[in-house]
Structures are given as structure tokens and as C-alpha cells.
Amino acid sequence: MSTPAAAPPLPIHTAIDRPHFALQFDDYHQQYDACVLGMWVFLVTEVMFFGAIFTGYAVYRMLHHDAFAMASNELDITLGTINTFVLLTSSLTMALAVRAGHVGNSKRVGQLIVLTMILGATFLGIKFFEYYHKYEDHMAPAFGLPFEAPKAVNDAGLAGPFQLFLSFYFGMTGVHALHMIIGLGLLSQFLPRSSRIAPAPGAAVLSALNIEVVGLYWHFVDLVWIFLFPMLYLIDRSDTI
């Protein structure tokens, strides 16, 4: 909970750009520290937010082990794996963008942000393709859509818990996707602008702070997926009763 990260990296342009900082702060460094700490505190609340549904999932996984294992087999592991790689790569480009922001290379920032956003959008595209498949297979347990569990599940009398798994799947990945969409919105502020508009003095330094904070958020959302993927797709996958 104490000071997050090490000493704030000194943007090399400080002397030239004279960064602006908000009135309530004494200097730029105080603002930098406060904003970064603020994002960390926010991420703590996010951990608790996802933690609640992860806990629920873990409890039900124990209660309805067989049904959850069978339902897990219905998920498309290939697309899930591809998506994991896509998202991890976006974390890499994000990290590079943060670095570029700190050294004041705004052209580089723009390129890397575009790359990150493309990867993020790819993830969402694949995710919605997966959703669509579930909808076609009558496995979307919402809005009163037709829901049919496979015959083996029905025969074992596990249709209810099978549907519960898919509820968790849609609930958890849905909330995650919502976070991704918000992340894309946050990233869009760093998209490269027309070069004719001269940046305001200090803009580079300020955007170094913004990009650090948004970067933290982006990595967190990726990290949530790193937990979601094994929990939903991988555990007990080979189990069949």
C-alpha cells in the first residue's frame, strides 16, 4: 500500500517543457505520485470486484464439479489460446508505449498505441465470435434465449449446473470485455494527432503520466484474463464422466 513502484522516472524533457500540474499539488512529482497511487488503489478495488465473482465460481466449481468440467469442454480452447497470446502481446506493446512516453518519444507512443488498440480490438472480435458460436449452439443462458445442454449432460441430470457454468462464463468474460472496451476508450486519447497542431508546452510530460496510469489499467485487465483463461477453459478439461 505504500509508495507504488520505485522513484518516479524523471521525464527527460522536464527542463524544457515545464510541465503543468493541478493547483492542489506543490509540484509535478507530487501530482505524478498521487495519480499513480490513485490508479493502484483503484486496481485494488477492481481486484475485489473480480474477486467476488471468482469466489462464487470457485465455490460452484467444487459444488458441481462434473457439470462444470463438461461445460468447460464446450469452450473453444483454440480461440481462447489465440486470444491469450493476442492479449499478452498487447501488454508488451503497452509496456513499450509507456517506456516511449517516459523518454518523450511521442511518435513512437502513437505507433505503439495503435498497435495495442488493434490487438485489443482483435481480442474483442475473437471474443464476440466465441459468444456468437455459443448463441448459435443454444448455449447463451440469458434473455430467455433457447438453451439446450448436450445430450450427455441431460442424461446425467446436470443441465442446471451446466447452465450455471455458462452463466459464469458469460458474466465473467462479459465484465472483462467491458473493461477492455473502457481500456480502448482510454487509449484512444494517445492516438497520433495531425502533426500540424503543435503540442502545448509540457504536453509530452503530462502525457507520460497519463500513459503510465492507463498502462497500469491495461496490464490489470490483461492480468484478469490470465486468471479467467485457465479457470474457465483449462481446469479439468480432459475430465469426462
Partner: peptide, 19 residues
């Protein structure tokens, strides 16, 4: 209609009380 606390599907209303 996502039935996480619905006992008809095997959901557990006690989970709500815990959360």
C-alpha cells in the same frame, strides 16, 4: 435471466449472503 443464485439450476442463495 442469468441464474447464479437460482436454486433450480443448482445455484446457492447462501452465496449471496456471503458476498
Amino acid at each position: 435471466g442469468i441464474g447464479i443464485f437460482d436454486p433450480k439450476l443448482g445455484g446457492d442463495p447462501i452465496l449471496f449472503q456471503h458476498l
